[in-house]
Amino acid sequence: MTPRAAVLELPADISVIENAVERAVHCCASARLARNRLMFNFRVGLTEALSNAILYGNGGDPQKRVRVELRVRSGEVRARVTDEGHGFDPDTVPDPRLPENIPRPDGRGIFLMRALMDEVHYNELGNSVTLVLREGTRPAP
């Protein structure tokens, strides 16, 4: 297949997340990943990235935007999610699986992205994350 690219520009409003994820899934269908990898791993991973960008990166400010860049080719999808925030250091986020963190209601988003996607990369500033999901490189999920 010919590689495909698409860009979504979103307001920093959590009510747009589900629809944006469905649009991204539709765009990525041509990668021909196994159905549950696209419909589960990718949907959850992208939801987490958008949620972090809107709530933490942009501080929920509806005047700010989130940019989603999709790159799709056979057997691989890439989604780069960029917010207008000042970034953060993802390596400082505690492991939610530690016994003292299991009863906490928060702190699982980055862990889930890393667990469900094949690659998760942040830029140096920490306001842009790239998710990569491929066919057949990791069991689902």
């Binding site: 419909m39 959850v44 939801t47 949620s51 906490r104 988003g109």
Partner: peptide, 10 residues
């Protein structure tokens, strides 16, 4: 269909 970390948190 799916649950995200916020859903787990709630």
């Amino acid at each position: 269909g799916y649950i995200d970390s916020s859903g787990l948190g709630i």
